[in-house]
Design a protein around this nucleic acid. Structure first.
Lengths: 143, 143
DNA sequence: TTTTGATGTAACCATAAAAGTTACGACTGC
DNA sequence: GCAGTCGTAACTTTTATGGTTACATCAAAA
């Protein structure tokens, strides 16, 4: 399917930010987060920009700049993160328009779109069940 | 997400094959199906090869060759097709191993894997509810 | 036995998304 | 004004998908 790791990294960043504040730090820098994720700071900044657009984090510029959580983790579900970083298209319909003379080619797109909408909704219903609070707790329980 | 159209084309092919038999034809050729899908016959053959591996279709070679359904549509769910043509990875974990010194980097992968397994299962539970029979009926109902 | 028409499959190219990287201007607390 | 970080553009690399060409293989039918 060519799945990406955007949701994984975004969740990682949020969990890391919360733990960072528990250690007494005000803000987190993209470089610190990138060090934990093991990627480039620009990749982190791009994802955090998406999260900021969704109101999940805030950023400060200038000296002593960095990122802060805009909500507590208990008020953020994995679905919130998913919606912030993914356009929400798990399955694609035909790349090129199928034959409109053929009954199958004519009718298949709306039918499959309904099937895919159902699958997408099922994913959302599942992701909304887990909060970022749950995620961090489970992470720390891994040892 | 970079979603693909493999499931769409595989479903399209199966529906077309059934309609083709209703019109009195024994077998369907990849060229005929490709004409309805509006793609290249090799793309169709590659997907039908996956469906054959799953026992959903059969092929004959030689003169008068082509493809036939190996089961009736009522006995094929969209989940069957999905499993035949997709490896089943909707979300990816980290591309590079996260920092194992960091508590978050250490614990996040099994936690997110469980979340993703749940989402994947939700998709399966949804796709199994629709049979290829339902799909063809709905396609023909589009006019 | 030859012809015919389709499968089976390799090889290659094109396209697009994701991720990684470099660079640098913008901003702000000190 | 300095230092440190964000914000973002630009470019490269990697990977999956899909499209295309080519051709060997096969089996029914002439």
């Amino acid at each position: 399917m060519s799945a990406n790791s955007r949701l994984t990294i975004a969740v990682h960043a949020l969990a890391w930010m919360e733990l960072n504040t528990r250690y007494g730090n005000e803000v987190a820098t993209s470089e610190q987060i990138a060090g934990s994720v093991n990627t480039n700071p620009v990749v982190v900044r791009r994802l955090l920009t998406d999260l900021r657009r969704a109101g999940l984090v805030a950023s400060r510029r200038g000296a002593g700049a960095g990122w802060t959580l805009a909500r507590e983790l208990a008020a953020i579900t994995v679905l919130d993160v998913y919606e912030a970083v993914e356009p929400g298209i798990l399955f694609a319909t035909h790349r090129a328009t199928p034959s409109q003379e053929c009954p199958v080619g004519f009718g298949i797109r709306p039918v499959m779109q309904r099937v895919y909408d159902g699958a997408e909704q099922a994913v959302r219903d599942e992701l909304i069940r887990t909060t970022m609070d749950d995620v961090l707790r489970d992470i720390l329980a891994e040892r």
